[in-house]
Design a protein around this nucleic acid. Structure first.
Lengths: 237, 237
DNA sequence: ATCATATATTGGTTGGATCAATGAACCAAT
DNA sequence: ATTGGTTCATTGATCCAACCAATATATGAT
């Protein structure tokens, strides 16, 4: 695999209604549109954005799923308080906007608390299949260190038998997908991660839960230090 | 507020496309439709469900947001693996289906890990405003114990300054909204919660982080015991 | 003032038409 | 035989126009 292939991702042009989602989403989340505000009728908004009402409605449904608006049949459309949402995609959107580093810091903070416990539970509950899968990943010469890291975390999440860990790990990975290269491109960090993979694999295989938790906590602290340094640099630039 | 009002929620008939979402969602999540499966074209599915193509498309977009399908322009629609989703709404859906109690147990498990740390952070970072807000809630004679409980948790989440705690708390509340009555209707539990409110409020006011964490961990353990007993009974019934 | 009713407003659904992206089949050049 | 370009059928994206259904508001009777 060529190096550039790691960065390559298929380009998909945003669909029209997705662009509208982004526009309204930003306005709600940055306070331009206050919670409780009644939005204009669909027909009017469609004209404003110069799109068909059907297209606008697709955008509105997405915003409804994000819990950013409430659509009331026969009444109208109201902006909601995004602080009352339970949709992780909002956090992802905030991280992407990169207006502040706070959202990313928030994610790191939760991650630091959750993931070591995940390793703890995984070590307790893992089956032989999980251990085999972990070993296969760690030994693999095919995957990049970052790919390995993602796979290792996924298997550990699965080993807990807790679906929610799975979902949260997927969330974290989406967040880190872009930032990850910054970390793994440094050979020193990559080496640190490979050592981590071997160690956590052994701890889980031995069902040494405390050890697994410690190993996970240590590598997270290490990575977080690197990331915070990076963020500080970037902010200065 | 009358007691029954606690249970009352406005009935809104599911919109047509929402019913379709439910149907397809179940089929994907229970394995009837395997990941990677190419679904029939929109025009065909619209006929199958006997709805307009526009309506079907609204359902498909929702499923796309749930990360249950992938829509490829010019190609087709493919089922995804819900284990690769990062959408909390899936968990909520699973809890609602009530086919097994596993999803709820999973939520309890994550909650037990996360929330005490939330209290810890909140005690460290809270401002005077948070303390005032907490006091006001705790003293309030207007709110039911359950309402108080929700508000207290929300303020604590806000006090951490971490948006993700907010979102996760909202998620938990959605899950517990129905189950909560079972807990709070027992006067003994309600009393336990009110004591908890007073204690956590003091700990946070004093910025005693360790104490706040402990208080939170204790009440969670207590509540979880009650809930698990309830689930065991219900299963037996 | 209160309640029932009519009306206007607004979101929900439908049918049908057209635009645009993709994949597969085919062809041409190497 | 392989690579790159072209054509065409399939399929999703968008548009348009009409009508259905729920809600809020205005209207009028009591």
């Amino acid at each position: 695999m060529s190096v550039s292939a790691v960065f390559a991702r298929p380009i998909t042009r945003l669909r029209l209604h997705e662009e509208i989602v982004t526009i309204i989403q930003k306005q709600i989340m940055n306070g331009t549109i206050l919670p409780g505000t009644k939005l204009p009728p669909e027909r009017e908004m469609a004209q404003t954005f110069n799109v068909n009402r059907t297209t606008l409605r697709e955008a509105l449904h997405k915003l409804e799923t994000l819990e950013l608006i409430e659509i009331r049949h026969g009444d109208g459309i109201y902006a909601r308080n995004y602080m009352e949402s339970s949709n992780l995609e909002l956090v992802r959107a905030l991280v992407y906007l990169e207006e502040t580093k706070e959202p990313l810091i928030a994610v790191l903070e939760i991650r630091r608390i959750l993931i070591p416990e995940m390793a703890f539970l995984a070590a307790k509950r893992r089956t032989k299949e999980h251990v085999d899968a972990l070993r296969q990943i760690v030994r693999s010469g095919e995957l990049s260190v970052m790919e390995k890291d993602i796979q290792v975390h996924l298997i550990i999440a699965r080993a807990t038998g807790n679906l929610l860990y799975n979902i949260l790990i997927n969330f974290f990975h989406q967040i880190y997908r872009d930032l990850g290269h910054m970390y793994f491109n440094d050979p020193q960090n990559a080496e640190r991660s490979e050592a981590f993979h071997r160690d956590i694999c052994v701890a889980i295989q031995k069902q040494n839960a405390e050890s697994a938790r410690k190993i996970m906590a240590d590598v997270l602290q290490y990575a977080e230090t690197i990331i915070r340094e990076y963020l500080a640099k970037r902010q200065g630039a």
